[in-house]
Design a protein around this nucleic acid. Structure first.
Lengths: 195, 195
DNA sequence: GTCTATAAGGGGATAGAC
DNA sequence: GTCTATCCCCTTATAGAC
């Protein structure tokens, strides 16, 4: 258990605050305070607020995509197992990082230029693999719907959490159980949709 | 076709900019310029940036909820028709206001206090009605899942649009057709899930 | 590498003339 | 109701001592 370096302390503080409040609402002074370091050090290590933000976004986006891309694009993994694994990965990841999807999707929506940079040269989804696997099983659902349905069923509860809880649909303290129960149902739901 | 009043011009400009960029990233000077009015008038009419923002959020939230609450809570409307109507309402509304759900859900996540105010005294969903209707039809899916599934299947494509299009999953110019095709499938999908 | 001090400008808000 | 001019705080960023 090494103590964190100054650079790591800044990254962690920035990651936490940017995720919660977005770029514009987060002040460099807050990041410095949260990290327990001096404001000048932030610029010493990262040059600018924007540069630090890009680093955070890149890392968060990586987390979000790694729970999905390698699995979807592996032709050796059968469809059922893909669905189950993605549901499991995301439920775990998002329970530990509840703001992750709304943060990334919102920043992507607000600041598209930033993501052009980051996702350039990176084909995010490997559609051909899924397309082939759907065809093999005689499923007529198109590929985009197949993927969007899985992601929607798994991620949407986290994206809409404030609405879901404050409406009384699911109580805040039952939310974790709610999404874990859903995780167990996703494969079945998706298979029924595709039947 | 009356010309817009100054107040309306400010509201429209604010609505557009807040929706696209969020509260913190939107400058009052930009709003004034977009509205073609003087900065001082913004404060003359609305008192403060925050107050103007609250007005915009209230209106956007109303749009989002009105496409759902009255239909869900009407015991005379059968389940199938509820699903179809909500799918139709949202697909139309969100095609005309693509940033609406990500804007509201993000601001709700970032600024919960604001929404406590707005949603106080407003039970958003009337779960008992749905619960009863599900029971009548012998469906065992729980109420929260039923509602979250519908909203996820309908709204998620809009929330995740930047990711979906920039990944090549759906081309930008085909996005409208993509969600319209989904609209036609939602009732069937939800019924299969609940079977 | 880390600090203090401060520059430089952006931002919301208002006073007061018209 | 609408404008110009301005206040004043807050923010990012940097210079320079240690």
């Amino acid at each position: 258990m090494e103590p964190l370096t100054t650079e790591q302390k800044i990254i962690e503080a920035a990651s936490k605050l940017f995720s919660r409040k977005g770029f514009a609402a987060t002040k460099t002074r807050e990041i410095a305070e949260e990290a327990g370091i001096n404001l000048a050090l932030l610029n010493y290590y990262f040059g600018s607020k924007e540069n630090l933000f890009k680093g955070v976004v890149k890392e968060k986006l990586r987390m979000l995509l790694e729970a999905m891309i390698p699995i979807l694009s592996d032709a050796k993994v059968p469809l059922d197992q893909k669905i189950a694994t993605i549901a499991r990965n995301y439920t775990k990841l998002l329970l530990e990082n509840e703001e992750l999807p709304i943060f990334i999707l919102n920043e992507w929506s607000v600041n598209k230029e930033l993501f052009v940079d980051i996702t350039r040269n990176a084909r995010l989804f490997t559609m051909p693999v899924i397309q082939e696997q759907l065809k093999e099983k005689g499923i007529t659902t198109n590929t985009a719907d197949f993927i969007v349905n899985i992601l929607g069923l798994v991620m949407f509860p986290f994206v809409a959490k404030p609405m879901i809880t404050s409406s009384g649909l699911v109580k805040e303290e039952e939310f974790a159980d709610f999404v874990k129960r859903r995780e167990g149902n996703i494969v079945e739901w998706i298979n029924k949709i595709n039947a």
